[in-house]
């Protein structure tokens, strides 16, 4: 396995000892096909055990290791060293409070996720003994893309609207709500509209599109949000402009 020398410039912050953040430069040797996370692990093991970051699966599915790499939100386990020249700048995920070093506090996202009711509210409840709800492959495909969200929050770090207006419900949470709205088994759209079709919901989105560009699993949140906008607009037109509220 061929190795190469990697230089990393990592943002350091420890609330116990620091009042501000600073960058620290490290140099380690890593396999050429390695990822930024491998470099961080090598640093922690051989140079500096005080460096802190989250990681687990090393296969881009657990969503733990999101960080800014050369200014771009990335999963560090999916940021290939071969794609970088020179010093790689590693910072904590933008738009979230930094607990320490590369560890950010996701509380706001977690709270928003809960608010959008991202669970099945059955259209026609039935007991388990009656078997599965039938759902054709086409009905599955309709919402499937939006099930793939790993909650890594890269889209929040990329979204300038969220950075400027933190009350914005944001791309991942709204996409998940939309996923259930599109599910043929679900009847909970009305319950979710109150949050996702509000000012803090989709109408805070100005379609920068950055969320979809950085999504590591191609959920395409921007698409979900625009679809919610259209559906909500149609609701409004039906309610206000059609005779009888469109009923």
């Amino acid at each position: 396995m061929k190795e190469r020398l990697v230089q990393l410039e990592v943002l350091r912050y420890n609330p116990d000892t620091d009042t501000t953040a600073h960058f620290q430069r490290y140099e380690v040797s890593c396999p050429e096909e390695g990822v930024v996370l491998d470099a961080l692990n090598k640093i922690k093991e051989t140079i500096d055990p005080t460096l802190n970051y989250r990681w687990s699966c090393h296969m881009a599915v657990c969503g733990s290791c999101g960080m800014m790499i050369n200014g771009e939100p990335k999963l560090s386990c999916h940021a290939f060293l071969r794609e970088y020249d020179g010093v790689i700048r590693v910072e904590p995920l933008a738009h979230f409070p930094v607990e320490r070093d590369l560890v950010t506090a996701p509380d706001d996202f977690i709270e928003k996720l809960k608010r959008v009711k991202p669970y099945l509210i059955p259209k026609a409840p039935k007991p388990i003994s009656e078997g599965e709800y039938l759902q054709t492959p086409a009905q599955l495909k309709k919402y499937h893309r939006f099930t793939l969200c790993i909650n890594c929050m890269l889209c929040y770090a990329a979204c300038p609207e969220y950075g400027l207006t933190p009350k914005f419900i944001g791309p991942a949470a709204i996409s998940l709500a939309h996923r259930y709205n599109l599910d043929s088994r679900d009847g909970g759209r009305d319950a979710r509209q109150e949050v996702i079709a509000s000012k803090e919901g989709v109408w805070e989105c100005t379609f920068v599109g950055a969320c979809s560009e950085v999504c590591p699993v191609h959920v395409d949140p921007a698409s979900a949000l625009q679809q919610v906008k259209i559906a909500s607009s149609i609701d409004w037109i039906k309610e206000h402009l059609l005779p009888g509220g469109g009923k």
Partner: peptide
């Protein structure tokens, strides 16, 4: 029963053409 329960909670299991 447990797998059906997950289906009722929304798990996106792959489907046969008839929806099962």
């Amino acid at each position: 029963k447990e797998l059906l329960q997950l289906e009722h909670w929304g798990c996106p299991w792959n489907r046969e053409p008839d929806g099962s």
